[in-house]
Amino acid sequence: MGEAGERGGERQEAGNREGSITMASSMTDSHRRFLQVLMSNGIIDAAEARRLHRFFCEQHKVYYAHDKLDDFIGIINTYLRPLFMEIRKGRSEDNGKIFYALVNLAITEATKVASDYAENELELFKKTMDLIVESESGYASSTNILNLSDKLQSKKMRKKEVEHVLQKFVQDKWLSERHGEYTLHTRCIMELDQYICETYQDVKKCNICHSLAIQGQFCETCGIKMHLPCTAKYFKSQPEPRCPHCNDIWPHDTRDLVQPDSHLSPRIPRTPRRISSSEPK
């Protein structure tokens, strides 16, 4: 997080800026649209964020500069924070790509979820999160999660119900699933990283980027953890794979670590809010 605007590379200096318009510090419709997209999608990747930034600024004729996306979002955030929300920038643990997510600055971990989920469903989420965070790989198998069904204190669930709720967690971007294994969704990590760090004392930070690492590889000698994309990037420039901390041989495969993009696949979504007018123009 917190790095200056990434260059997409594809875009030249925005030719003719509308120089006379000053960088306003109040919300315009371009900001509102951007925020609405995040409310509707929850999370978007950096390419989409850049596209929308440009599109909305042009649409509403407000100041646009391609490298000012983070400032643009900063304005939205000054208005959002008092409302216990924030747009955050973070990296996917799968592929290292940048994402923007709308998160709740929740007092409890589940203020957001609480509105829609029953108590035992929340408990299931919490227990699933325990499994994921306390695992080495950052994944929990569906079998292990299904086995939680009769361990719920609040109200037991049938396995079928657990399956159904798991799907809901995936749809709502709390979890992501791959081959029957579940991990925390990028958006969930962005929202809850502070909570996770406070709740699980043993949770590891990535030795490279220093942010929370759920999925990753361990050093079997000294125990440090690294995100897969961070690992891949780091070892690419090393003559041989040695732990950056204890210099022992790195015991894992370090090639082809970065998964094809898993967050861009269409998911079942939330509601847009307006009768779609028949005519785009």
Binding site: R32, S40, L52, P269, T271, R274, P280, K281
Partner: peptide
């Protein structure tokens, strides 16, 4: 709550079954 912003082509809002529902409603 009423959305004051008209939908635009390519506005990035989620497309899902509720879009189809709005078509039926229309």
């Amino acid at each position: 709550l009423i959305n004051k912003l008209e939908r635009l082509e390519g506005d990035g809002m989620k497309m899902d079954e509720s879009v189809a529902k709005m078509g039926l409603l229309m």
